[in-house]
Structures are given as C-alpha cells and as structure tokens.
Design a protein around this nucleic acid. Structure first.
Length: 279
DNA sequence: AACAAGACCTGCATGC
DNA sequence: TGCATGCAGGTCTTGT
C-alpha cells in the first residue's frame, strides 16, 4: 500500500489516539507477517505509554516510555485503523492494540508484507531496517544537489533509482512516476544523467507531489485510508499513474497519434509517463 | 558494489 | 459459472 504520504497520513491519524496513551492489552491474532513478530511483542507493549510517533521513510516508529521503540511497516496492503469499539474478528486483522480508556488500534494486512520490530530507542539509527535509508525528501536539506550526489554513477534508470530506499527514503511506485512527470523527465533516463537543473527540477517535483499527496490524505487505491476511515483523495490528482492511454494533463498533442500516457515495466514495476513531455 | 530476477502473500479484475 | 492468468502502494534474498 503505502508510500511516504500514506504513512505520514497514518502517523498523523494515529497521533491523537496514541500519544500519551497506555496500551492496556495487545492481542496478536496472527504473528506470521513479513517476519514473525518479535518474541513477547504483546507483553512488552502492554502497560507501556506511547511518547512519540515518528516516520522514517515508509516506517512508522512508536517511542515508548520505557525507552523501547516499535518499528512498523505497512508493506503493500497494511492498514491502521482507530476503532471506538473492539472489532469483530475479521480474517486479516492481525494485531489489536487496546488503549487504556480509549479506542482500539487495529492492524489489518491481507498480504502480510507488513512487519513490526522492537528496538531500543537509542539504537534506532543502527537498526538494520533503518540504517541504510537515504535522506528524507521533505526535509530542508533535500536539494537538487543532494539528489544528484545520490544518483552519481548510478546506471539504473532514474525511475528505479527514485524507488531505491537507500538513495532516497519514502518514494514508491506511484510517486516515482508522478514526480518524474512533474519534472518532465523520462523514467528511462539514467539516474546519473540527472544533475544540475534537472536534479533541481526533480527534487522540487518530489517535494511538491509528496506535499500535495499528504495534504490530500494520501492516495486510496484499494487499501489505504486514514486511521479514522477517511479516504485519501490524491488518486484524483494523478497525472500519469494508472492512466495509460489517457491524455496527460498538460499535453497538447494528438492522443490518437501519440497513444497518450504510456505504461512500461521497469524493474518489474509498472511505470507511467508522457512520452511527448518527458525527456 | 551494483544490478536483475525471484521470492514472499492474498484479493481482485479480466478473459476464456 | 468456473478456472486460469495477471496485476497490485514493498523489499528482502539470491545469483550474476
């Protein structure tokens, strides 16, 4: 499911339900997610208070009052929901977090690519899931210069490079295509060729599209919604993603002739772009 | 070290 | 209707 904007939407949605609140019980209905849940996961959370809820790339990080932290990833189909009443058991509701004098937070994930881990808070930067992540694209230091530096000597396509979490954290299949469209760069271009003004344009496009998507509550394709059930709306803002054969928003060319937005496959993932505008 | 392909899992849309 | 196929917001592992 979720790329940076969706995870950020989840983080914001969970904040009022979790910050300063205590887990009265944690119920693991199914521990075999991407990896088995850490041993004693439920017991180690029960009675703990959440003191901070952070995001790093596509990871959610819950800091607890005993110094430990939960590292959560939603995989492709993971959701977090805040429910006033405990849920009826449903097939893919794998973890239930009960909040003392509060609602229930439910983790649902049909494909079970999501994961949870536990880590001492001061050891988070060295955790294997976090240590190699690239820079955060919404932080102020994220510039064209930094992007060009990350892409230097990369022989893969810029689209593939954008999705490499070691190079930049948080961008996935949707926003890679969308950012390249906004920067007018072909997804087939070698990453190393994105320097100077092109890198400036791409860095700016990444920031713009991620900010716009967060403002819209993320994109709702099949699984994503905010924790309160509100659907993200950014799928209505897609310029190219999942729009093969349609006209791109800025294209003046003849669709019958050009074929409109093109779908290709790069690294096994669908890529969408406008061949007329993106170079 | 960098890169490509396969693996993991389920649900859904499509086409025969 | 039933079945096969392909596709889906990710990323780890394996092999070159």
């Amino acid at each position: 499911m979720p790329e940076l904007p969706e995870v950020e939407t989840v983080r914001r949605g969970l904040t009022p339900a979790l910050i300063g609140r205590r887990f009265s019980a944690v119920e693991v209905r199914r521990p075999d997610l991407r990896w088995p849940l850490p041993s004693g996961f439920a017991e180690r959370l029960t009675g703990r208070t959440v003191i901070a809820l952070e995001r790093r790339g596509k990871y959610l990080i819950l800091r607890l009052d005993d110094g430990m932290a939960v590292i959560a990833h939603l995989g492709m189909s993971g959701r977090m929901r805040v429910l006033v009443a405990p849920p009826e058991p449903a097939p893919h509701d794998h973890v239930v977090f009960r909040i003392e004098d509060g609602p229930v937070v439910l983790f649902t994930d049909p494909r079970r690519f999501g994961s949870f881990d536990l880590c001492p808070g001061d050891a988070l930067p060295a955790h294997r899931l976090l240590r190699d992540l690239g820079p955060e694209p919404l932080e102020s230091g994220f510039t064209g210069r930094l992007l060009a530096e990350r892409f230097r000597n990369r022989k893969v396509s810029v689209k593939t490079a954008l999705m490499d979490q070691k190079l930049i954290a948080g961008i996935g299949n949707i926003y890679a295509s969308e950012a390249l469209y906004r920067a007018r760069l072909s997804p087939n271009r070698k990453a190393a060729s994105v320097r100077g003004r092109r890198a400036d344009a791409l860095a700016a496009a990444i920031g713009t599209v991620l900010d716009a998507a967060i403002a819209a509550g993320g994109s709702s394709l099949r699984d994503h919604s905010a924790p309160d059930g509100t659907l993200g709306l950014f799928q209505h803002g897609f310029a190219v993603y999942a729009r093969a054969g349609l006209a791109c928003p800025d294209c003046q060319c003849d669709i019958a002739r050009s074929g409109g937005i093109r779908r290709t496959v790069q690294g096994g993932r669908a890529t969408f772009y406008c061949p007329a505008l993106q170079r």
